[in-house]
């Protein structure tokens, strides 16, 4: 459920940015500093910005897991590439017909970018399904923690019951495999076009 809501926002935000954004040094942000080095600053900042009423839960919630990943260099990059392919004449023609930027984005650009949007959605889903380190640090309530954390905790609990461990791993991997088999074309296309490593 969280993923659906997150991706609606994600696609919307990426769409907004990609449209006019032509010259951005995208990967720089992603590669700037290893996450491990910014964990403490991030933790402090998240606590200050999103401290809920109960101080003990720190940032523990959905928001902290969603917000930082809404704007990703990856989706911006991907959509920008897609939009670059639109002929300028199309935009001019739309303007003559009286369509503004929002209108143009909505009725011309959007319907013609479905496959790229699907790519963004699938890659976004994979990233949130596989999220580990960020939620590990930021959250503590099992009811809002993502599945990888549950699996890691289970590794500790199941001890050496390898049959249980394998079953758990299979459960966690199954949706990803299913999605991958269905959306393989889009995924591979996205990676091949931008070459960004998850």
């Amino acid at each position: 459920m969280r993923n659906i809501w997150k991706h609606a926002v994600l696609i919307f935000a990426a769409l907004l940015v990609a449209y006019p954004f032509y010259y951005m040094v995208t990967t720089a942000f992603k590669n700037m500093m290893p996450a491990e080095a910014t964990l403490i600053p991030n933790f402090v900042m998240m606590t200050r910005l999103f401290r809920p009423n109960d101080p003990t839960r720190i940032v523990d919630g959905y928001l902290v897991q969603i917000l930082p990943f809404i704007a990703t260099a990856f989706s911006i990059f991907l959509l920008r590439q897609q939009f670059l392919g639109f002929p300028k004449e199309l935009k001019d023609a739309a303007r003559i017909d009286g369509a503004g930027d929002v209108r143009f984005l909505w009725s011309v650009v959007l319907p013609n970018s479905v496959s790229t949007l699907v790519t963004v959605a699938i890659i976004g889903f994979l990233a949130s399904w596989n999220a580990f380190q960020w939620p590990l640090i930021m959250t503590s309530r099992p009811d809002i923690q993502p599945v990888q954390i549950g699996l890691n905790a289970f590794r500790g609990e199941a001890g050496s019951s390898y049959h249980l461990l394998m079953a758990a791993a299979a459960f966690v991997v199954a949706p990803v495999v299913a999605l991958y088999l269905v959306g393989q074309r889009y995924l591979v296309q996205g990676v091949a076009r931008t070459g960004i490593r998850g």
């Binding site: 964990l39 403490i40 933790f43 402090v44 606590t47 200050r48 401290r51 101080p55 003990t56 839960r57 720190i58 590990l136 640090i137 503590s140 309530r141 099992p142 905790a153 500790g156």
Partner: peptide, 25 residues
């Protein structure tokens, strides 16, 4: 209100962060 914070290492990490943030249990 008991809140489990993961294993001892994680609990330590979170407490360190909470000290920086000034929001302690």
């Amino acid at each position: 209100v008991p809140i489990v914070q993961g294993n001892y290492t994680l609990l330590y990490q979170k407490t360190l962060g909470a000290i920086q943030a000034g929001a302690l249990p």
